[in-house]
Design a protein around this nucleic acid. Structure first.
Lengths: 329, 329
DNA sequence: TACCGCATTGTTAACGCTCACACTCTTCGG
DNA sequence: CCGAAGAGTGTGAGCGTTAACAATGCGGTA
């Protein structure tokens, strides 16, 4: 910086002013400084700036070490929004999903000097771990439990699940079975809740839900059970990957989809439209979730705000072949 | 830090020594300092440390703003390896794929003070952009062209493609068609190359390859073309998602897989085993790729090394139902 | 006893930047 | 023609840490 100043014939402070777009710099001086910076290939040192201002312009993201579509898509939304707000993004993948590991991840980021944290790990354990966190650092959690009192952006899982279930009920085939996600995910809970609500309102029996782990494999396992029960005519899968496994199992057992069994998924992954048959599902706008996280977080950071705001994104039912039979069995 | 020193009755330098595990600190002093840190909830300031040491212990990752499985999985490998090496990870998603945007991303990271960059954006444009980069910052590129002379970790795409094609040829049905990935991806090129090599060696005709964009949609489009050509009996898809679309199209046109048409994909995404029918594919160990990237990069960083090393990971053919017909047509 | 060597600790000066303040030079109204 | 306001610029301090060197105290050896 001194070099730039010398070359431009000004003081280091003037260079700093140019760097920070201060108004009181003469145009000619400004361009001379700019030119010098160019000439010398000068790059401001962010560590020094952070040290003196106390602001790192960096947010941390805690993500799951998985390749699940939802978290990855949300991550991109976060990254994009942060870039536009001129913030850097520091990621930490969670080694395991217990609260200790969440705490450790937060600690890592805190030491790295982030100004806020977005948690894309919608596990109960994460929310709990965060609840009794040193509150000295702004935090936004994706799909946190509303009661937890932390700022969060949530997709209304229950609403989506309810609509999916109602859609299946509308086929008039009786009750709807459910392959749920892991019990410790808040998403799972919301979806189970919405599914039950729809069944209750329609006054039909609530069959016992099966539980998977979001993977196609687990959907397949569940499918092998369901396929053998002749009374199963409609299944709401907790996500699209499990729906894929389910479709596979039904196919193997010769149960035609959608003519014998209707299936609905959740997420609307890009491939869902190309399943056999194309999958009816509930779309979540993940990148919007990511963007809102950043907006909320930066709000908290820059206004020294408190307000544990919550933002809710509504999902949308996308009807495809897997739930629209031609003939009634 | 001063506070900690005062509470422990030592100088700030001794605190620093404890922090950095210097040998010459008496055990009793060390624990007293440690206790003070605990007591005061002290956290070292990484900006200050970076400023004085000149090392940020941060690496940058340039990724594609996509939810493709490969890049996401590689990213996790990088994140994991970096964490274990006690480096932080700064991500930047690429807004678009032109060279300007790559350069801009590198510039962002450089300003953020990263000590090295991993590029997970295996586009020709990325490699080119990187080739004429200010070489003042260590860089490792995933699947860069070997000729480019940059350090990289590559999966031997051509080998995988060749083996996939040979596997299809072994069914004895004549030539193998190919749905390639986008032309500007180095992966695509390698896979096309391997496919052609296999056909050449078997002395069979090389049909014109179709080109997709990795998405299931594009595979479906290609499938609608291929399904109508009765001479098509074996197809090698550039990745699993396109294979999925392909399967869908073949199904719609009543072409049985694998009995009429054999299909092989590439990547072995977790869902591939649950396609209808389960997909034969070529597995890439993405997290290994990520881990090696970090190892190479840290090697470059810490040894002030030059050595544009290249590391090659071999893919593996995974045979499933989609390429193993019962009856010969 | 005198002195060397080592373990342990303290002191001072950077690192590159921004902030607060001081200073100079215009410009303009009275 | 003088003084005040304000634009434009420079000076010095300090952000929290580590590196280099200096200083202290202890045990052992000549």
């Amino acid at each position: 910086m001194m070099d730039v100043a010398r070359l431009a014939g000004v003081s280091h402070q003037t260079v700093s002013r140019v760097l920070n777009d201060h108004p009181n710099v003469r145009q000619s001086t400004r361009s001379r400084v700019l030119w010098s910076m160019q000439e010398l290939g000068y790059r401001p040192n962010s560590a020094a700036r952070t040290l003196v201002t106390g602001h790192s312009r960096t947010i941390g993201v805690i993500g799951l070490d998985s390749t699940l579509y939802g978290p990855a898509a949300t991550m991109h939304g976060v990254d994009d929004a942060a870039r536009h707000a001129d913030y850097r993004v520091n990621t930490v993948g969670l080694a395991s999903i217990d609260r200790l590991s969440v705490l450790e991840a937060v600690e890592r980021l805190a030491t790295a000097g982030v100004e806020g944290v977005v948690v894309i790990a919608p596990l109960s354990s994460a929310s709990e771990a965060l609840a009794d966190l040193p509150t000295d650092i702004p935090t936004v959690v994706v799909n946190a439990h509303p009661e937890s009192g932390i700022a969060s952006v949530t997709v209304d899982q229950a609403d989506g699940a309810q609509r999916a279930t109602e859609h299946l009920l509308a086929a008039g085939r009786g009750t709807v079975w459910h392959v749920a996600g892991p019990a410790n995910w808040s998403e799972s809970k919301g979806r189970v809740e919405g599914w039950m609500r729809a069944l209750d309102e329609a006054k039909v029996d609530v069959p016992p839900p099966l539980t998977g782990d979001w993977s196609a494999r687990s959907g397949y396992e569940a499918g092998r059970v369901l396929a053998r029960l002749p009374e199963v005519t409609a299944v709401f899968a907790g996500n699209d990957h499990m729906a894929l496994g389910l479709l596979r199992a039904l196919h193997e057992f010769g149960r035609a989809v959608p003519d014998e069994v209707c299936v609905v998924g959740f997420d609307d992954i890009p491939e869902a439209a190309y399943f056999t048959p194309p999958l009816t599902t509930v779309r979540q706008d993940f990148s919007e979730v990511g963007r809102r996280c950043v907006r909320l977080l930066i709000g908290q950071i820059e206004s020294t705000g408190d307000a544990a705001e919550c933002s809710v994104v509504m999902p949308e039912l996308v009807v495809r072949r897997s739930s629209t039979p031609n003939k009634v069995p």
